[in-house]
Amino acid sequence: MNLNTSCVKPKRPLSDTVLIYMILSFISLLTAALNLLVIISISHFKQLHTPTNSLILSLAVSDFFVGFLLLFQIMFIDGCWYIGDLMCVVYYGLDYIITSSTVGMMVLISIDRYVAICDPLHYSIRVTQKRVQVCVCLCWICSLLCFIVLLKDNLKQPGQYNSCVGECVIISIIHERVADVILTFILPITVIVVLYMRVFLVAVSQARAMRSHIVTVTVQGSRKVTAKKSEVKAARTLGVVVGVFIICFCPYCCVSLADQETLLSVSSVAFVLCLFYFNSCLNPLIYASFYPWFRKCIILIVTLQILKSGSSDTNIL
């Protein structure tokens, strides 16, 4: 293997390179900032310490780190990797762990909404804060273990597949990639779609039932109706999050299965990666659009009112 030659840099106008740097840098900073607001909001305000919000918190942590992954992608724009073979493996490792954990969070969110809508009487018993925290930890641990198993050869000798100085190449055999896509894409997406189809059907039937009985409900019954509406709204919001994730994630998985050197151009691969990363920036915007409590939290955080004593007990719902 000859490593005396330098990596080949793509030829593009300076203006295009500067524009790409600016756009990716902006998306990176925006992704980190918006998800940091979600993390602070759910962590700080006690009213938001619910099982569902714990899942949203973990998803926001994943999306927050995606903002930093974009910084690595920015370094790789001109086709050369300048920070060493070990950091190359670390970059791909972080990318895999964050991607896998994000998929796991989407599955857990779907299960949470399924139980809340389809079996509301047992929701508080089956879905507890402690159980959700255990599931979240297991999700991250499993992602780390899968990364170690799939890229063990690359971990033993970083840079062994590089053909020139400045390359960042990670190799996995085809059956490993197929198994990875099945475990981290096909099966999870199937579970998510099946659960949300069931949630959608039940939510529609509940909405019809609420409209037909809205006139005759008692005060106690109206509270139950409000609670049901809240659960349906949460399911709809998180359904949008899941739907956007699937749209952004499908091309990414297709690229991971394809032979990138022969089937796809470098620009196409870069676009697919950026589309997937941009999904992490969209999630907080979806929360801001559908959740009034998140908009209120942003105001309290930006105006530094959370620094006041007892601010964690603020009524934001």
Rank of each mutant, 00 (worst) to 15 (best):
Ile141Pro: 03
Ile141Thr: 13
Ile141Phe: 14
Cys142Gln: 07
Ser143His: 07
Ser143Gln: 02
Leu144Arg: 02
Leu144Gly: 04
Leu144Thr: 12
Leu145Phe: 14
Leu145Gln: 05
Leu145Pro: 05
Cys146Thr: 11
Phe147Trp: 13
Phe147Ser: 03
Phe147Cys: 04
Ile148Cys: 12
Val149Ser: 10
Val149Asn: 10
Val149Ile: 15
Val149Thr: 09
Leu150Glu: 01
Leu150Asp: 04
Leu151Ile: 07
Leu151Thr: 05
Lys152Gly: 01
Lys152Tyr: 09
Asp153Ser: 13
Asn154Trp: 05
Asn154Gln: 13
Asn154Asp: 13
Leu155Cys: 06
Leu155Ile: 15
Leu155Gly: 05
Leu155Phe: 07
Leu155Asp: 02
Lys156Gln: 12
Lys156Ser: 15
Lys156Asn: 04
Gln157Gly: 08
Gln157Arg: 08
Pro158Val: 07
Gly159Pro: 04
Gly159Thr: 06
Gly159Phe: 06
Gly159Tyr: 07
Gly159Asp: 08
Gln160Tyr: 06
Gln160Ser: 12
Tyr161Asn: 10
Tyr161Gln: 07
Asn162His: 13
Asn162Phe: 03
Ser163Arg: 15
Ser163His: 10
Ser163Asp: 12
Ser163Glu: 15
Cys164Tyr: 06
Cys164Met: 10
Cys164Trp: 03
Val165Leu: 11
Val165Pro: 02
Val165Gln: 10
Val165Asn: 14
Gly166Ile: 08
Glu167Gln: 14
Glu167Lys: 02
Glu167Cys: 09
Glu167Ala: 14
Cys168Gln: 05
Cys168Ala: 03
Val169Trp: 01
Val169His: 01
Ile170Asn: 03
Ile170Thr: 11
Ile170Arg: 02
Ile171Pro: 02
Ile171Ser: 04
Ile171Asp: 08
Ile171Gln: 06
Ser172Cys: 04
Ile173Trp: 06
Ile174Glu: 12
Ile174Phe: 09
His175Asn: 12
His175Thr: 10
His175Phe: 11
Glu176Arg: 06
Glu176Pro: 02
Glu176Asn: 11
Arg177Met: 11
Arg177Ile: 07
Val178Pro: 02
Ala179Trp: 01
Asp180Cys: 09
Val181Leu: 08
Val181Glu: 06
Val181Thr: 12
Leu183Cys: 11
Leu183Thr: 14
Thr184His: 13
Thr184Tyr: 08
Thr184Asn: 11
Phe185Tyr: 10
Phe185Cys: 11
Ile186Ser: 03
Ile186Arg: 02
Leu187Phe: 15
Leu187Thr: 09
Leu187His: 07
Pro188Cys: 15
Ile189Gln: 00
Ile189Val: 11
Ile189Met: 00
Ile189Ser: 00
Ile189Ala: 01
Val191Pro: 00
Ile192Asn: 00
Ile192Tyr: 00
Ile192Pro: 00
Val193His: 00
Val193Thr: 03
Val194Asp: 07
Val194Gln: 05
Val194Phe: 08
Leu195Lys: 00
Tyr196Ala: 05
Tyr196Val: 03
Met197Val: 07
Met197Phe: 13
Met197Pro: 01
Met197Thr: 13
Arg198Asn: 13
Arg198His: 12
Val199Ala: 01
Val199Leu: 05
Val199Asp: 00
Val199Pro: 00
Phe200Leu: 12
Phe200Val: 05
Leu201Gly: 10
Leu201Thr: 08
Leu201Ile: 06
Leu201Val: 14
Val202His: 01
Val202Asn: 03
Val202Gly: 01
Val202Lys: 06
Val204Asp: 02
Val204Gly: 01
Ser205Pro: 02
Ser205Ala: 13
Ser205Asn: 13
Gln206Met: 15
Ala207Asp: 08
Ala207Thr: 12
Ala207Leu: 09
